[in-house]
Design a protein around this nucleic acid. Sequence first.
DNA 1: GTAGTTATTTGACAACCTCAAGCATTTGGG
DNA 2: CCCAAATGCTTGAGGTTGTCAAATAACTAC
Lengths: 149, 149
Amino acid sequence: MTVQAKTRPSPAHEAQKFFFELGMVQRTKVGARLAELGLSFSQAHALRILDPDEPMPMSALAERLFCDASNVTGIADRLEVRGLVRRQSLEGDRRVKALTITPSGMKLREQVMELMSQPPDAIAALSEADQRALRDILARAAAHLRPAD
Amino acid sequence: MTVQAKTRPSPAHEAQKFFFELGMVQRTKVGARLAELGLSFSQAHALRILDPDEPMPMSALAERLFCDASNVTGIADRLEVRGLVRRQSLEGDRRVKALTITPSGMKLREQVMELMSQPPDAIAALSEADQRALRDILARAAAHLRPAD
DNA sequence: GTAGTTATTTGACAACCTCAAGCATTTGGG
DNA sequence: CCCAAATGCTTGAGGTTGTCAAATAACTAC
């Protein structure tokens, strides 16, 4: 139990506190708006990830959702029942089922994109300069994301 | 279907994309670490919110968790079964039950705090200058949070 | 063609979450 | 004082998310 090691929290540590708080609030708000559309957060996120032009295998979706493949079955089921998505066996490999967005799914997807790409009020309220700086810094951080795979 | 209206996304809109992505990745990572401690995300978050020195009424916790009071019953149950938390009827008003963290709950809480206050790798990898700027900007944003209530 | 791999599904189980209803306690008006 | 309304928590029903292990179907390689 040395006394050191907590000598100085890095600025990143301090930033994390705000980052987390903003994230929680935003998630709650967005969740409420999504509920009005009859969508859960996961369903909306899935809809967002799906490429309107390219059918996506369920396993690929599972990877993007950071969850088990068996979980995607249920999510796809519920989206499919509502006619937002269709399962389509891949020609060439009939094991894999790719998901396609239906026209009505596309309409809902638009709204979801609009909704979820909206920044938290607290961030929208920042000055232009702050917003730009924030965007640039987060862009640099996100760039660190891919190589880290 | 006019063409305008999407003329120029604000920097905040662009920032949101990275913000969301970083948040998702972090949530997944933290979730995995928490699972090793036998805690769900909600349980950990609750443990974090509870004040070690001051018993907190369950309704207050519900508010901080942005969820229904009936939901807190279950979360508190599971924490209490593991001896991390105790229900304590408030003297003066026996309706309200306040949650206290037990010593063993405190030990776990320390680890949770440590774990969840750790910034995403992508942010920790930023330059000192970027980290500082990020912290300051997010602090300004978070300040906008409280008055907005 | 047979054995092993791969993609999805199913079933069992647990947590989270909401809503409506119920219970105990407290508060306020007659 | 007493009863009605309000408050804080719990319970029960019902739905979504999530995991794991086992089952199924289809592909691949020897």
